[in-house]
Simulated assay, not measured.
Amino acid sequence: MNPRLEINYCTQCRWLLRAAWMAQEILTTFETEMGEVALVPGTGGVFDVRLNGELIYSRKEAGRFPEAKELKQLIRDRIAPDKPLGHSDRKEPV
């Protein structure tokens, strides 16, 4: 089964462009690994990201929007742990 990512965004807050940009980043990074990215309109300041139904990021819980780099890392760790992310990869501690 190919992974399905959902980005639930607030229409009242006009966060569609942010959600669409994030979807583009994910689809570009995970061209062969990702099965689907869905944009799910919501209300009440929501910006949640779910992978195969599992909540992997919540703007309300984190108190901020996700950075593309961290979202890519969260997704990679679940669907393609060996995939290098180039400049978006974590820096190893020295």
Rank of each mutant, 00 (worst) to 15 (best):
residue 1 M to T: 14
residue 1 M to A: 14
residue 1 M to W: 11
residue 2 N to D: 00
residue 2 N to W: 11
residue 2 N to G: 09
residue 3 P to G: 02
residue 4 R to M: 03
residue 5 L to A: 05
residue 5 L to I: 14
residue 6 E to K: 13
residue 6 E to Y: 10
residue 7 I to W: 03
residue 7 I to T: 08
residue 8 N to H: 15
residue 9 Y to W: 14
residue 12 Q to E: 15
residue 12 Q to F: 12
residue 12 Q to A: 15
residue 14 R to K: 15
residue 14 R to F: 13
residue 15 W to G: 01
residue 15 W to N: 02
residue 15 W to I: 00
residue 16 L to C: 09
residue 16 L to K: 12
residue 17 L to Q: 04
residue 19 A to C: 08
residue 19 A to D: 08
residue 19 A to H: 08
residue 20 A to V: 08
residue 20 A to T: 09
residue 20 A to K: 14
residue 21 W to G: 13
residue 23 A to I: 05
residue 23 A to S: 13
residue 23 A to Y: 06
residue 23 A to H: 05
residue 24 Q to T: 12
residue 24 Q to G: 07
residue 24 Q to E: 15
residue 25 E to T: 05
residue 26 I to Q: 09
residue 27 L to S: 06
residue 27 L to R: 12
residue 28 T to C: 03
residue 29 T to A: 13
residue 30 F to N: 03
residue 30 F to W: 01
residue 30 F to D: 02
residue 31 E to C: 05
residue 32 T to F: 00
residue 32 T to V: 02
residue 32 T to E: 12
residue 32 T to Y: 08
residue 32 T to L: 12
residue 34 M to Q: 10
residue 35 G to Q: 11
residue 35 G to S: 09
residue 36 E to C: 02
residue 36 E to F: 07
residue 37 V to P: 02
residue 37 V to T: 13
residue 38 A to P: 01
residue 39 L to N: 10
residue 39 L to T: 04
residue 40 V to F: 10
residue 40 V to K: 10
residue 41 P to D: 04
residue 41 P to H: 05
residue 41 P to N: 08
residue 43 T to C: 02
residue 44 G to H: 10
residue 44 G to A: 12
residue 44 G to F: 01
residue 44 G to R: 00
residue 45 G to S: 10
residue 46 V to N: 07
residue 47 F to P: 04
residue 48 D to A: 09
residue 48 D to L: 07
residue 48 D to W: 07
residue 49 V to T: 04
residue 49 V to G: 02
residue 50 R to D: 00
residue 51 L to E: 09
residue 52 N to F: 01
residue 52 N to K: 00
residue 55 L to C: 04
residue 56 I to N: 04
residue 56 I to Y: 02
residue 56 I to D: 09
residue 56 I to E: 03
residue 56 I to M: 00
residue 57 Y to N: 04
residue 58 S to M: 01
residue 59 R to P: 07
residue 59 R to F: 06
residue 60 K to W: 06
residue 60 K to R: 13
residue 61 E to R: 14
residue 61 E to S: 13
residue 62 A to E: 15
residue 63 G to C: 01
residue 63 G to P: 01
residue 64 R to T: 03
residue 64 R to V: 05
residue 64 R to D: 06
residue 65 F to E: 03
residue 65 F to S: 06
residue 66 P to D: 03
residue 67 E to Y: 07
residue 67 E to I: 06
residue 67 E to G: 14
residue 70 E to M: 11
residue 71 L to M: 15
residue 71 L to G: 01
residue 72 K to Y: 01
residue 73 Q to E: 10
residue 73 Q to C: 09
residue 74 L to E: 02
residue 74 L to H: 03
residue 75 I to S: 03
residue 76 R to W: 02
residue 77 D to Q: 11
residue 78 R to T: 09
residue 80 A to V: 04
residue 82 D to I: 01
residue 82 D to T: 11
residue 83 K to Q: 14
residue 83 K to L: 15
residue 83 K to G: 06
residue 84 P to K: 07
residue 84 P to V: 00
residue 85 L to K: 02
residue 85 L to D: 08
residue 86 G to R: 08
residue 87 H to P: 09
residue 87 H to Y: 10
residue 88 S to V: 02
residue 88 S to D: 14
residue 88 S to N: 15
residue 88 S to P: 03
residue 89 D to R: 02
residue 89 D to W: 00
residue 90 R to F: 11
residue 90 R to V: 11
residue 90 R to P: 01
residue 91 K to M: 13
residue 92 E to G: 12
residue 93 P to M: 07
residue 93 P to Q: 13
residue 93 P to R: 13
residue 93 P to F: 11
residue 93 P to D: 12
residue 94 V to G: 08
residue 94 V to S: 12
residue 94 V to W: 14
residue 94 V to I: 14
